[in-house]
Design a protein around this nucleic acid. Structure first.
Length: 825
RNA sequence: GCCCGGGUGGCGGAAUAGGCAGACGCACGGGACUUAAAAUCCCGCGAGGCUCAAACCUCGUGCCGGUUCGACCCCGGCCUCGGGCACCA
C-alpha cells in the first residue's frame, strides 16, 4: 500500500461509484425507522458559496450518521428556481430566464456533486418547471376553494426598482429586502392568502416544537403579535354613525382625553365636512397618502395630526371627546381608530404634549405623580384606579375586567383579540414565477382554472421591459382565453405568485416527486412526514418558516397530510465570515468553494467548515485552518496505510481480555472516542468537538507506533473505528481507506460502531485533591475506591499532610471519581 | 427602548449536571531526519514569580458584588459586541 493521499482521484472515483450504484436512492421501507433530513434548497444563482457548503455539509453529516445508525434516511435536494434574478438577467443580458436558470442549475448541480453529498438525486425537483408549478397552482386552487385566497384592492408595498409589490415580510427598514430600494405605497388589486385565519394555530403550535431554537420561536411570536383587549363603539355628536376602537387598556377609559382616527379611516371625510377644520383635515389626509406605511410607523417619525372638528362621547361618563386624525394610527391594525389616554400611553402622551391636549391620571402606580403636569412620560404600569367614577379604588386588572363586562352588557363592546400578522400578499407583477391560475370573465367574474387544465404554462416567447406591469400583460396569446364556465372570451390573470409560495410546500413534493396527478400521495407523505431535521440560515426565521407552517396546517385541514407541523427540529446555522464580516462581492472577501475543493479536496473543505465552529455560531474563515485540516487527513492517510498491511487479514477478536498496558490504552481510547463522537453528533450537533475527538484517536494511533509488540486485534479495531467515525464528515477518504484495508463493502453501509462499556472501565484513576477549593495534589487510586478510602488516601498523602499540619480540618468533601476537597481553618 | 445570543491564551474554539480552566486545531519555539530546505515525526507553548533546571507559589474565563467547601457555569448590578423587534393602540 504505497502512494500518497490523492484526493482528486479518490473523490472522483467514489462520486462515480455512488452515482452508478444509486447509493443514496431510497424508498419507503416500513421495516426501518424513517428519518427525513432536509436542508433549505438553494436559489440557483449559478455558483455555490461557502454558506451553501456549510449548510449541506451539516446536513450530510446528519444524514449519513442516521443511515449508519439504522434509519431509512430521506435526503433530497432541489432548486428554488423562480425569482427575480433570472428575469433581471434577461433584461440585462437578453438571456431567457428559463435558459439562464437551467444553465445555473447544471452548474450548481455539478458543484454540489463534487462535495460528495448523499442526496437521492432521483427526487430532484425544480420549482420553475411545469411538472412542479402545476402543483403550486394546484395549491392556489385549493386555498381558493377553501376561501383562503382572495383578491382585494389595497395600498401595498411597491418596490420601484423590482417593479413589483412586496409582502410586508419582504420590507426591511422601509426598503426592499432584495434590492434595498425604498418601498413606496401603491393602490392595486392583489391576491392574498388568508394566513391570518391561522394566526392562533401558528402561535399555539410553536409549543409543539421543542426542537426549534427559542430565538426563532420568539421571532415568530412577535411577528404574529397577538394582543388581547376589547373593542367598543362610541357615538359621535351630531352624526348617526358610531366609531369603533380597539384598546388593550379599557381600565384607562376614564383617562381618555382625545380620540384618534387613522387618516385613511372612512369616517374622516364626513366628520370634518362643514367644520372649520375641513381644509386642514383634507390637506393632512392628502399629505399622508404619499408617506409609506413604513416611514409612518418608524419610531423616529414625529407624531403629528389635526383635529377633525367632531366630538365622540365617552360611554362611561358621557364626556365630550375631541376626535383627531394622526399619522401614528394605522388603518390596517385593529379598527383604525383608538381612544387616546396620554397619561398611560407613551405615544398618546407625546401627541398630547405637542398639541396641548389635557392629560388625566387614572391609574395610580407607585411612582405615578397624581398631578399630570408632573409626568415626564406616560405611566404604563399597574396601579389603583382613580378619577374613574364607580371604579375608583379597584386594581387596574380588576377594573379592566369590570369595564369590559359593563361595555358588553350595554351591547356596545366585547373582548377581542388582535394580531399584527397580516394576510400574505402573493401577487407579483413579474414573468418568472408560477402564473396565478385564474380567469376573469365579464359574465362569470373571477373563475379559477379547472384542475384538469393545469398547469397554466408560462409562455416562452416574451419581451422583457420593466414597466411595472407583468410582462405577461403584453402576451396576447397568454391572456386571451375563454371562460371555463360559459365559454365566452375572457382574460387570464397576468400576475405570477410570490416565490415563497413555491417553497412553502416543496418538502412534501420530495416524498412523491414523479406524481403527475397530485402534488403527492398521502401514503408516502404519511410515512415520511414530518421533516425530522431541517437545516438552514436564520434569515428565514419568519418568512419561509411561517409560510411553510401555514401550508402544512392547510394541507392537514384538507386531509392531504396527517401532521400539523412541517419541521420537527430546526438547526439554524451561522454565517461564514472572512476578516470578521460576511463574505460579499463588494468587500472582496469571497473564498470560492470551487477553488478550495480544487486545491484541497471536498473532504478537507467539509472537515474545516465543520471543525472551525459549532454549527449555530458564525464561522471565521481561515486559510491556515483549512491547511490544518488537510494536514490531518494526510496524517490519517499515512497512519492507516502504514498499518494497512499489518491488519488486512486480521479479525477483530470478540473480546479483549488481558491486554498489555499500551494496547489497553488504545482499546480504551477507541471506545471513548466512539462514545464521544456519537454523543456529540446525536445530542448536540457539536461536530467541532466530535472531530477533535477523532483527531485524538488518530494521535493515539501514532503513539502506538512506538510499541514493538503490537496487538493487531486492538490495532485493527482502532483503525476501523477511525474510518467509520470519519465517514459522515469526510466520506471519500473514509471509503478509500476502508477499501484499502481489505473491506469489501462500503463504509457507508456499515453499522455505526457501538462502544463497549467494558472497555471504558479503568483500573486506576486520577483524583484531584483540593484544599479550600485549590488543587494541591493529584493522587492515583483504584477506580473501585470507596468514598471512605478516597478520603483516607487524600488525607494520608504526604504533601497534603504537610499543608494541613497546622490547620484544623473542618470538613472533607468527596466527589467519587473526581476530587476531594479539604476544608481547613 | 424591548427581547434573544455572545465576551475564555497570540487566533478558532473546549470544559456535556456547580467539581482539575484552556481539549483539539492554528500560529509560534525547540529537537530528530536532511548536504540543505520543504514535508514528516517528536516535544514545549495563559501571565507572572522563584530557579541552572525541576518542584513549587501567585494571579487568571468582560467589570463589580453575592451564594457555595468549590463558580467560565447559579443570583444581583454594570460594560461591551452581534442579532431580532420597535409608534400595532
Amino acid at each position: 500500500m504505497e502512494n500518497s493521499y490523492q484526493f482528486n482521484l479518490i473523490e472522483k472515483k467514489w462520486q462515480k461509484i455512488w452515482e452508478e450504484q444509486h447509493a443514496f436512492q431510497i424508498g419507503e421501507d416500513s421495516n426501518l425507522p424513517k428519518y427525513y433530513a432536509l436542508e433549505m434548497f438553494p436559489y440557483p444563482s449559478g455558483n455555490l458559496h461557502m454558506g451553501h457548503v456549510r449548510n449541506y455539509a451539516i446536513g450530510d453529516v446528519i444524514a449519513r450518521f442516521k443511515k449508519m445508525n439504522g434509519y431509512n434516511v430521506l435526503h433530497p435536494m432541489g432548486w428554488d428556481s423562480f425569482g427575480l434574478p433570472a428575469e433581471n438577467a434577461a433584461i440585462k443580458h437578453g438571456a431567457h430566464p428559463a435558459k439562464w436558470t437551467a444553465a445555473n442549475i447544471e452548474n450548481m448541480r455539478e458543484q454540489l456533486k463534487t462535495l460528495g453529498l448523499s442526496y437521492d438525486w432521483d427526487r430532484e425537483l425544480t420549482t420553475s418547471q411545469p411538472d412542479y408549478y402545476k402543483f403550486t397552482q394546484w395549491m392556489f386552487l385549493k386555498l381558493y376553494e377553501n376561501g383562503l385566497a382572495y383578491k382585494k384592492n389595497a395600498a401595498v408595498n411597491w418596490c420601484p426598482s423590482c417593479q413589483t409589490v412586496l409582502a410586508n415580510e419582504q420590507v426591511v427598514d422601509g426598503a426592499c429586502e432584495r434590492c434595498e430600494a425604498t418601498v413606496e405605497k401603491k393602490k392595486l388589486s392583489q391576491w392574498f392568502f388568508k394566513i391570518t385565519d391561522y394566526a392562533q394555530r401558528l402561535l399555539d403550535d410553536l409549543e409543539m416544537l421543542p426542537g426549534w431554537p427559542e430565538k426563532v420561536k420568539t421571532m415568530q411570536r412577535n411577528w404574529i403579535g397577538r394582543s388581547e383587549g376589547c373593542q367598543f363603539d362610541l357615538t359621535i355628536e351630531g352624526h348617526d354613525e358610531t366609531m369603533t376602537v380597539f384598546t388593550t387598556r379599557p381600565d384607562t377609559i376614564y383617562g381618555v382625553t382625545f380620540m384618534v382616527l387613522s387618516p385613511e379611516h372612512p369616517l374622516v371625510e364626513q366628520l370634518a365636512a362643514g367644520t372649520e377644520q375641513e381644509a386642514a383635515v383634507k390637506e393632512f389626509v392628502h399629505r399622508m397618502q404619499f408617506v409609506s406605511d413604513v416611514t409612518r410607523t418608524s419610531a423616529e417619525t414625529e407624531k403629528e395630526g389635526v383635529f377633525t372638528g367632531a366630538y365622540a362621547i365617552n360611554p362611561m361618563n358621557d364626556e365630550k371627546i375631541p376626535v383627531w386624525i394622526a399619522n401614528y394610527v394605522l388603518m390596517d391594525y385593529g379598527t383604525g381608530a383608538i381612544m387616546a389616554v396620554p397619561a398611560h400611553d407613551q405615544r398618546d402622551f407625546e401627541f398630547a404634549r405637542k398639541y396641548d391636549i389635557p392629560i388625566r391620571v387614572v391609574i395610580q402606580g407607585e411612582d405615578t405623580p397624581a398631578d399630570a403636569d408632573q409626568l415626564t412620560q406616560a405611566s404604563t404600569g399597574p396601579g389603583i384606579m382613580v378619577n374613574s367614577g364607580n371604579y375608583n379604588g379597584l386594581s387596574n386588572e380588576e377594573g379592566h375586567r369590570q369595564i369590559v363586562s359593563y361595555l358588553t352588557s350595554q351591547g356596545i363592546g366585547e373582548a377581542t383579540i388582535n394580531y399584527r400578522l397580516r394576510d400574505w400578499l402573493i401577487s407579483r407583477q413579474r414573468y418568472w414565477g408560477a402564473p396565478i391560475p385564474v380567469i376573469y370573465c365579464d359574465d362569470c367574474g373571477t373563475v379559477p382554472i379547472p384542475e384538469k387544465d393545469l398547469p397554466v404554462l408560462l409562455p416562452e416567447d416574451i419581451a422583457f421591459r420593466p414597466s411595472g406591469e407583468s410582462p405577461l400583460t403584453y402576451v396576447k396569446s397568454f391572456y386571451e382565453t375563454t371562460c371555463p364556465v360559459c365559454g365566452k372570451k375572457a382574460q387570464r390573470e397576468t400576475d405570477t405568485m410570490d416565490t415563497f409560495v413555491c417553497s412553502s410546500w416543496y418538502f412534501t413534493r420530495y416524498l412523491d416527486p414523479h406524481n403527475t396527478e397530485l402534488p403527492f400521495e398521502k401514503k408516502p407523505a404519511d410515512y415520511w412526514m414530518s421533516v425530522d431535521q431541517y437545516i438552514g440560515g436564520v434569515e428565514h426565521a419568519i418568512l419561509h418558516l411561517m409560510y411553510a407552517r401555514f401550508f402544512t396546517k392547510f394541507l392537514y385541514d384538507i386531509k392531504m397530510l396527517s401532521v400539523q407541523e412541517p419541521f420537527m427540529n430546526l438547526l439554524t446555522q451561522g454565517m461564514v465570515l472572512k476578516d470578521g464580516s460576511k463574505m460579499s462581492k463588494s468587500k472582496g472577501n469571497i473564498v470560492s468553494p470551487e477553488e478550495i475543493i480544487k486545491t484541497y479536496g471536498a473532504d478537507t473543505a467539509r472537515l474545516f467548515i465543520l471543525f472551525a465552529s459549532p454549527p449555530e455560531r458564525d464561522l471565521e474563515w481561515s486559510d491556515q485552518g483549512v491547511e490544518g485540516c488537510y494536514r490531518f487527513l494526510n496524517r490519517v492517510w499515512r497512519i492507516v496505510t502504514e498499518y494497512g498491511d499489518l491488519i488486512r487479514e486480521v479479525n477483530i477478536p470478540p473480546s479483549f481480555a488481558e491486554l498489555e498496558p499500551a494496547a489497553r490504552k488504545l482499546h480504551y481510547k477507541t471506545h471513548a472516542t466512539i462514545k464521544k463522537v456519537s454523543e456529540d453528533i446525536e445530542e448536540r450537533f457539536n461536530f467541532n468537538t466530535a472531530i477533535s475527538a477523532v483527531m485524538e484517536l488518530c494521535n493515539a494511533l501514532y503513539a502506538y507506533r512506538d510499541q514493538e509488540e503490537k496487538d493487531l486485534g486492538v490495532l485493527k479495531e482502532a483503525v476501523d473505528t477511525l474510518l467509520l467515525l470519519l465517514c459522515p464528515f469526510t466520506p471519500h477518504i473514509a471509503e478509500e481507506l476502508w477499501q484499502r484495508c481489505g473491506h469489501q463493502e462500503s463504509v457507508y453501509s456499515q453499522a455505526w460502531p457501538r462502544f463497549d462499556p467494558e472497555a471504558l472501565v479503568q483500573d486506576e484513576i486520577e483524583i484531584a485533591v483540593q484544599i479550600l477549593g485549590k488543587v494541591r495534589e493529584r493522587i492515583k487510586v483504584p477506580s473501585s475506591c470507596t468514598k471512605e478510602d478516597l478520603e483516607k488516601a487524600a488525607l494520608s498523602n504526604p504533601k497534603i499532610q504537610e499543608l494541613t499540619k497546622d490547620k484544623q480540618i473542618v470538613k472533607v468533601i468527596v466527589v467519587p471519581g473526581k476530587l476531594v476537597n479539604i476544608v481547613v481553618k
